[in-house]
Design a protein around this nucleic acid. Sequence first.
DNA 1: GAGTGGTCTAGACCACGAG
DNA 2: TCGTGGTCTAGACCACTCA
Lengths: 231, 231
Amino acid sequence: MPTLRDTIAEDLRAQITAGRLKPGDRLPSEPKLAAHYKVSTPTVRQALALLQTEGLIEKSHGKGNFVRPLLRRITYTSGARIPLAPELQTTIRTTNLRARGHLRTLLRVPANTPLTEFHCTTYEGGNPRSMARIYIPRDLTPASQPDSISWPTGRTAGWVETQETVTARLPTPEESAALRISPTRTVLTITSVATDATGRVIEAALLALPGDSADAVFISHPAPKEEKTDR
Amino acid sequence: MPTLRDTIAEDLRAQITAGRLKPGDRLPSEPKLAAHYKVSTPTVRQALALLQTEGLIEKSHGKGNFVRPLLRRITYTSGARIPLAPELQTTIRTTNLRARGHLRTLLRVPANTPLTEFHCTTYEGGNPRSMARIYIPRDLTPASQPDSISWPTGRTAGWVETQETVTARLPTPEESAALRISPTRTVLTITSVATDATGRVIEAALLALPGDSADAVFISHPAPKEEKTDR
DNA sequence: GAGTGGTCTAGACCACGAG
DNA sequence: TCGTGGTCTAGACCACTCA
């Protein structure tokens, strides 16, 4: 038997998908919904929380609950490092730092190796849609300062293998702030490590996308020769 | 300023990672935790819900809350169709059906095309760890009945391109039942479509993994020639 | 039957957003 | 200032597990 919150969520979901509640519309306030469904406000809030994790509504403190505009799903494509689409704008911030902790392991470099960090955020109409941090050993950083618009679209020269790991997890506080998503909404993360012919890591990228509106696409072809699985 | 539930979650998290609470241990009951932290039970429950989405604890109705055994993360590797590891057992169920709806689109076949479905579940020590449905047009189904143990480890012969799409979403009721996870825990899904030289889809696979203990790994190499991105 | 978590109530008070 | 959602309380009752 469905619970009250499921019944309420189902009713609101039906109203949204049927178009009686349109994208951008404000829902009745929580006390009003509670009165309408004859339940307490916490129960209404549980139903709304369900719809929120499904990406159907957005909650906005002090304003109300809104039917979420149908977000086009962002698509990340293997090797791109950031999602690319004509409607996405990108900002890049460059920082110099030294390898330590997790970064050291990822890039397989000694502690304190100088690195360049590129902090990329993509926006669609002012709303952040993805966050990426790209790390390159300083001695490999392109001499010509990367063009802050077109650079992340190409791959670093000389790569021979790229390994991309996809996970789903809760956002770090930094990620939830940067992507403006609630800390309870999962992010899809992609960790990309590119190596050159000598096996040296020439680039690592950490990418976070809002889990409810992102895909990652990978296209593979059979290896011409026997493919090694050296791990 | 952190909320009460964050503070409580943080404290319990610390006890788990410090080893004062070990995998498999039962936590004090919710009323006891509430008394200990001097809060109401709903607040304790919110803290526990946080830890649950992080995969740190398991709730078991009528028994208690338990520190979750540190699950080895399952790793899906590009093209494997199901996660492979020595400690994983697999069961396969074969069904014949006809293409319709979403399946029709995925396999790019006319309605009612005969298909063979392989329903694979992998287990680790009796616990389901992944669920996959693999679809193959009936006329391509291997004449020799696939060996129910070794078959899904190899790829269908004749593939020229595989496209794999990774998403994170809430589980369908079927998925949450099959994987024995709560309906609020995200699943990582992989949709894999393999095509032959003529562009015909020769196999589609839908894979669902518990989001908090799964990775998907993709390894790519530069195309020998110019790589087409025909979509 | 005793103890546990799951759902729900009916409020309170605080923090945020807009006029 | 007013209405909104965010957090929290202090219970109630039901459903499940195990002895």
